[in-house]
């Protein structure tokens, strides 16, 4: 295998564009496919190229049969992202755990005393208001958004922006009562019930979490379960 092709595939994905690396499992010949651009020594016919495009679309690496034998198609998609609104205590373990889980993490909090480098060493921080920050970050279907301030001034604009995005996961910290009041406000702001149903609130799986680290575990577990909902469904007993 050519190391530069693998490096380019990963660099392309990190820059926000999907790429696929196809390898013939007999000869070891490879081709890097990035949109309509191709680089490498493996020739693929139209049917094989269509299968590569489908694998990229489904974000699923797979082995395909071609006239020249079996070809492994490895999909390199842009990193998952986790946007945490509220640089509060829970955000500290959650940022670390999400980074370990493969997410590019951004913490958003206009209160500069909270969103400080000293409290979050090495984490990307934004001190803009969440609606402005999210507009700039453009959450997509590979993004999870969690609000943690339970201050409506900060959480509500964040949740409005989140609901207008394709984010695969939206979670909001707060008790059932807090969440009901929040949904009431968002409903008055014009969001329909089925839109509000996208918000996981109270946030996280019910594992009896108490400490900030335990609550972070419950949130990241719920994000993971949502990301892999299709796999979970496949595994449900008959």
């Amino acid at each position: 295998m050519k190391l530069p092709l693998l490096q380019e595939a990963i660099a392309t994905a990190d820059a926000g564009r999907p790429a696929a690396l196809a390898t013939n499992l007999g000869s070891g010949l490879q081709i890097l496919i990035e949109g309509s651009e191709k680089k490498g020594t493996l020739a693929l016919d139209d049917a094989a190229l269509a299968a590569v495009a489908a694998a990229v679309r489904d974000d699923r690496s797979t082995t395909i049969d071609t006239a020249e034998g079996k070809v492994f198609v490895e999909v390199f998609n842009p990193p998952l992202r986790c946007m945490i609104v509220g640089a509060v205590h829970i955000a500290q373990p959650l940022a670390q755990m999400a980074a370990l889980g493969g997410y590019a993490v951004t913490i958003i909090d206009p209160r500069q005393a909270f969103a400080s480098e000293a409290r979050f060493p090495g984490v990307t921080l934004s001190t803009e208001w969440p609606d402005e920050a999210l507009e700039a970050l453009r959450p997509d279907r590979r993004t999870a958004i969690v609000t943690l301030t339970h201050d409506p001034k900060i959480d509500d604009p964040a949740l409005s922006a989140a609901l207008e995005s394709d984010a695969f996961y939206i979670g909001a910290l707060g008790s059932r009562k807090t969440h009901a009041a929040r949904c009431g406000r968002l409903s008055e702001a014009g969001f329909a019930q089925n839109a509000l149903a996208r918000i996981h609130g109270p946030v996280g799986l019910n594992i009896g979490a108490l400490s900030p680290a335990e609550i972070a575990v419950s949130i990241l577990a719920q994000i993971t379960a949502t990301l892999h909902a299709d796999r979970l469904k496949e595994r449900e007993p008959g």
Partner: peptide, 12 residues
């Protein structure tokens, strides 16, 4: 697909 962190660590 696979965790981005893993793939970066192995490439490095």
């Amino acid at each position: 697909m696979d965790s981005t962190g893993d793939r970066e660590a192995i490439l490095k």
